[in-house]
């Protein structure tokens, strides 16, 4: 986590060490040369950038169950907005912010999905970027981590086990909740229950201040919609029909929400692997509905 370095007894260095730097996510105090926060494992580069550029990036959470498509969604979103900046433009801050885009797109170009995000927070990909909106002209900073679904599940079941998740979700201005539409269609209710738990968890994070999750913009994104035509046509209806418990909870908990459908692969085949089990393989890449939820959340944060 923190680099083990031998500190020379130089007064200048000692002064630097004496001044703690607060982690941008959990506000824990770290030394100036820490790569990751010693408390939550968020990259300290976020704090350094915020301090040096005198800007305070907003945070938007991308959450969902393991395998819901968070990595693909974020990587694809970044690439689409950096390639076609007519609606929104996204410029990465720092080399580490491009890693997610690079690994995701390299895998998709080979007709593969990227590897599963590891559970360890110091191995997550974080995106710190500048987003520019042409109409009305606005520029702002944004932080979005690609959190592992299993870590989110663990945190939801055992609150405060992942400090980075708790801290980040407390500070987030909005959320993109990704729900696997195919799993909903198949009738397995785990996907629904996971998201119901997640929504309850978000409600518990409210500390009584004005900044409550019930008021924050929440985009509920049904992923893999390319495999469910009815989901693509009317995502809200699809959610109501296939996940009535979740749909009801969303109506009660979030005043400002909207359902979206997204898909990245046009069709999939299945590969059986000894180590990974059943793995989906995309047969072609044709993204749909990727930018719209993000655009909606931003327009709610910044005003239309």
């Amino acid at each position: 986590m923190t680099k083990g370095v031998i500190v020379p007894l130089e007064s200048a260095r000692l002064v630097e060490y004496a001044v703690p730097i607060a982690c941008y996510v959990c506000e824990g105090e770290n030394t100036f040369d820490s790569e990751f926060c010693r408390y939550c494992a968020a990259p300290m580069a976020l704090a350094h950038q915020a301090n040096s550029q005198k800007v305070h990036p907003r945070m938007v959470a991308t959450v969902g169950a393991s395998g819901a498509g968070k990595t693909v969604y974020l990587g694809m979103l970044m690439d689409m907005l950096s390639r076609q900046p007519h609606r929104l433009q996204m410029l990465a801050r720092g080399a580490f912010s491009i890693t997610l885009q690079q690994t995701t797109l390299a895998a998709l170009a080979r007709c593969e999905f990227p590897d599963k995000t590891p559970n360890e927070p110091d191995r997550w990909n974080w995106v710190h970027c500048q987003v520019r909106r042409p109409k009305p002209r606005q520029t702002f900073e944004l932080i979005m981590p690609d959190m592992a679904g299993e870590a989110i599940l663990h945190e939801v079941d055992h609150p405060h086990s992942f400090r980075v998740i708790t801290s980040f979700l407390k500070k987030s201005s909005g959320a993109l909740i990704l729900i696997d539409a195919v799993k909903l269609k198949e009738g397995g209710r785990n996907q629904e229950f996971f998201n119901m738990k997640l929504i309850s968890y978000l409600g518990e994070l409210d500390d009584g201040s004005k900044n409550r999750w019930s008021k924050k913009p929440v985009a509920l994104i049904l992923t893999k919609a390319d495999e469910c035509d009815d989901c693509r046509d009317d995502p809200a209806r699809y959610a109501r029909e296939h996940a009535p418990g979740l749909w009801q909870q969303v109506q009660e908990r979030f005043r400002n929400h909207r359902f979206f459908a997204t898909g990245v692969a046009g069709a999939c085949a299945v590969r059986h692997s000894v180590t990974e089990g059943r793995v989906n393989v995309p047969l072609r890449i044709e993204p749909h509905g990727v930018v719209e939820p993000f655009e909606w959340v931003l327009s709610n944060l910044l005003g239309r």
Partner: peptide
């Protein structure tokens, strides 16, 4: 056919 694609051990969930 699954053999037309470059991935080994690939199966199609339905004929394509």
């Amino acid at each position: 056919r699954a053999s037309d694609l470059r991935h080994p051990n690939l199966t199609l969930s339905a004929p394509m």
